[in-house]
């Protein structure tokens, strides 16, 4: 809670959840949640499966709409629960806000009918209206940055899982988001390629000022990447503290139980 009170007077929050609830049928997955992410902040979300971590990312990316509450991005309402609240905003304004967010998925979700380079170029050209040559230069630069300079002409089906995920990271970066969401980006990978993907994310954390929201089951990664770790259970935030506190001296019994279970 300390984080939130100190940030109140500073620049607008990168993202803010205000009393957000989300349920699928009778099952409440996010329960009256309040969450604030400051610009450039790196936050890890940990917790048992079904605790709502991924749903937080999907809500922020507008892949899901909240049933109640409000989600703000840099002070603007991105989506809100209740009738027509989100629809009231003109599409152009809505997309201007959504464009500040990028996401990398567990299953990569690369476009299989396009080469790695085309995957990265597609949105800058088609959405931002970037000149093709400029977009190509940017894409080549980003592929180089994720260590895939030679793979531009390959189709996703010709790449390993680790390579595909790195292309997906380059593709998300090409839109220059201010908040980047990583949704269990190593969960679908073979153990031997997890390291190469995590290294790319670590480098990004050093080289950029994007806010990052990371959902992961890799506890070492969750600790090393973050300024702040949030432990969730049953759609609620149970503990919200620095990585040191959460991993070395968790206050909450359920956090302790979860971390102990993982160690075993």
């Amino acid at each position: 809670m300390d984080h939130q009170s100190t940030s109140a007077s500073q620049a607008p929050l990168a993202a803010e959840f205000v009393n957000v609830s989300k349920s699928f049928g009778a099952f409440t997955i996010i329960d009256d949640l309040n969450l604030q992410i400051r610009p450039s902040e790196r936050v890890s979300l940990i917790g048992p499966s079904g605790s709502g971590k991924t749903t937080i990312l999907r809500l922020l990316m507008t892949l899901e709409r909240p049933n109640e509450g409000e989600i703000k991005v840099f002070g603007d309402v991105l989506s809100a629960g209740g009738e027509g609240a989100a629809k009231a905003r003109p599409d152009r304004e809505f997309r201007a806000i959504r464009g500040k967010i990028g996401m990398v998925f567990q299953q990569f979700n690369l476009f299989p009918h396009m080469t790695a380079l085309e995957n990265v170029m597609e949105a800058p050209v088609q959405v931002l209206g970037t000149q093709r040559q400029e977009a190509r230069d940017l894409a080549e630069c980003l592929l180089k940055r994720v260590g895939l300079a030679e793979k531009g002409a390959s189709y996703p089906s010709q790449l390993s899982g680790g390579q595909q995920q790195r292309v997906a990271i380059a593709r998300a970066l090409a839109m220059k988001p201010q908040i980047m969401l990583f949704d269990e980006i190593t969960s679908a990978l073979d153990p031997e390629v997890i390291g190469e993907v995590l290294e790319v994310v670590h480098n990004l954390a050093h080289e950029t000022k994007m806010a990052m929201l990371v959902v992961t089951h890799e506890m070492g990664f969750a600790r090393d990447i973050a300024d702040r770790v949030i432990f969730m259970e049953r759609g609620k935030i149970v503990e919200d503290a620095s990585p040191g506190e959460i991993f070395n001296s968790p206050r909450n019994d359920r956090t302790k139980a979860f971390l102990n279970a993982i160690k075993r």
């Binding site: 990316m61 464009g99 990028g102 998925f105 979700n109 690369l110 949105a123 959405v127």
Partner: peptide, 18 residues
């Protein structure tokens, strides 16, 4: 077509028609 493809286009801020 896999739901993930739709998700990816939203994450890249594409309008539905595009």
């Amino acid at each position: 077509i896999d739901r993930g493809q739709h998700d990816a286009t939203i994450a890249l801020n594409m309008p539905t028609s595009l």
